[in-house]
Amino acid sequence: MVHSACNLFSRGRPFGAPAFLAALACLLYFVPGAGRALEYDRVAIAGGQLWRILTAHWTHSSPDHLAWDVLVFAVLGAALSARNPRLFRWIVVVSPLGISGTLLFLGPQWHIYRGLSGVDSALFVALSTVLWKECSGTKRWFAAATLLLFGGKIVLEATMGVALFATDTAGYDVVALAHLSGGGAGLLCFLLCRQDQARRRPVLPVSLPHLYPLVMAFLNRAAR
């Protein structure tokens, strides 16, 4: 089973990983109590429930919320995974940390957070940057235009502190900061992954699994 799941992330199956993760988000939505146990809860994180830093992004609050977030994740994930599976993996691993970390440091007013849209933002920025770098002609300018439009939107939202186009969010506030930090994480992953590939060795002196406990401990401290 573990072996099969790992295969989903292999180069030969570019759509496997996004599909698997999208299905996981859907499954978690329908498992009773999963949302409460896995959502970002600032107080619980401070109390040591560090898994919430990562799992919050796979929980959702309403069918609409789930549908839009997961649809965008599946499509952007598949597109990026097909072009650059390594970058996709970087984003899936790094952006949840980046978004939760930003909320812990810069968004103390946010007590509870759920949703995949921060990761979607990371995917959006990374994919459009990849297209801009790899393509030419109209496609290149299309990628640049979408990046500019999206980048402008998330910066404006974060500055104004309101969501520009979201109207029905089931009574929850939209956390523009999560979108901005997600976009930032996407760009950072693109740069790190590019260096990583260029050098043909990891850009960081230690592997991500080794860094994770340290980062988690740091974020736990921030939550307090």
Binding site: W110, Y113, F165, Y172
Partner: peptide
């Protein structure tokens, strides 16, 4: 404290889907 969500609005989703479709088509 506040409860918040990361929510992709339909307009942004359309732009993202367009981007994804463009990337896959190419």
């Amino acid at each position: 404290g506040n409860s918040g969500v990361g929510f992709v609005d339909p307009l942004t989703a359309s732009l993202a889907l367009l981007l994804g479709a463009g990337a896959l088509a190419r």
